[in-house]
Design a protein around this nucleic acid. Structure first.
Lengths: 194, 194
DNA sequence: TCGGCTTGCTGAGCAACGCTCAACAAGCTA
DNA sequence: TAGCTTGTTGAGCGTTGCTCAGCAAGCCGA
């Protein structure tokens, strides 16, 4: 009853190739499955390998989905990172604009990332917090403001505000894109001025 | 090697008692364990019953932890709900004040609730969204503002802002309690005026 | 007091999943 | 072609969610 009449010859990949493939599969599954609920079985099946091999590359399931989360975080970070040479003013609005674009394009994946990050698992949360930390620094730098604990808190909270609002807006646009950007920018300016 | 020399006689509880006990145990475990990671084994052990009995009351594990989440949401809602007879002005500040108090007192449990709610599981998210919806209505009512989609989005996003900021503040107070309340109130007023 | 009924409750057991381990084999190198 | 490295597998174990047939606590009518 084996479906494939002629099994394709066993293919040996380099370690790096295999790791990259496994992480890529995890990223593909992200929109439909909360990171922590990825099953080794499913991933291995998609990669066409045995479950055991996955454990050769990632000692535990947690180590695996942390790697997937980190990959998602890196994609976001690279996309938001201001290009060198842009003026401080452009940097903030550019990042904000690119963030909205990111959510518009990868809404489900991004939501899955945020959810996975918010939801419980300390290892995943750490990756997320790390990214938020980097973003705060980039924002403070672009705004030309010193980095104190109070302002840091306010900007982090503003991220939460932004994430939530942009997520809702992408589903049901209650204002124009420009209005949204202006509103977010305005709230940020008022908060960071405090 | 059985610890208890004389097993206590098997005790029969009423269905309601048992359900309540199981939910209570879930709530007690919430601060230390993400809802979805509660194990039937652990809960049953704490209740002194067999795993099977838990499935008699809750058809699936998901049904169980959804009930636990709903119980947590109800506790929060009852605590925040403005007392009848208070003026609209007092209602908003009262709710805000009680919310901060709630986080101060039950920080871990509340964080666990929010995390569980944000994290993936649609059933749990639904309970959370329902509570947020009720809170928006209460807020709009107290503010004396009409209920349109745009404002709704803004207030929901403000909730995200508030949750995040109060959570951070409770860990590391970077301002006085009154300053925090004033800031939150100010942001809310500016947003809802838009 | 006793039989019978309801229903709270249990234990055995299955399937899925995370994870381990000993061993096989692809493919390079001497 | 022999030998070595290492990518890869299959068998199998413990835990956990879930099922099911059946036991027994406690109430009720006679």
């Amino acid at each position: 009853m084996t479906a494939s009449p002629a099994e394709p010859p066993r293919l040996r990949r380099s370690a790096d190739d295999r790791r990259a493939q496994l992480v890529r599969i995890g990223l593909e599954l992200l929109p439909t499955t909360p990171v922590q609920e990825l099953t080794i079985d499913e991933v291995a099946r998609r990669a066409g390998i045995s479950r055991s091999l996955l454990f050769h590359y990632f000692a535990t399931k947690r180590e695996y989905y942390t790697a997937v989360t980190r990959a998602a975080a890196d994609l976001l970070w690279e996309h938001l990172l201001p290009r060198p040479g842009t003026s401080p003013e452009e940097r903030v609005s550019g990042m904000l604009d690119r963030y909205v674009g990111w959510v518009e394009t990868y809404r489900e994946t991004h939501l899955a990332f945020v959810r996975g990050a918010a939801g419980g698992d300390p290892w995943v949360s750490e990756v997320y917090e790390e990214t938020r930390g980097r973003l705060v620094e980039a924002a403070l730098d672009a705004l030309g403001l010193p980095d104190d604990a109070r302002r840091r808190q306010l900007i982090l909270a503003w991220f939460a505000f932004t994430e939530d609002l942009v997520g809702q807006w992408a589903l049901e646009p209650t204002m124009s894109r420009d209005e949204l950007l202006a509103l977010l920018r305005d709230v940020l300016d008022r908060l960071s001025a405090r």
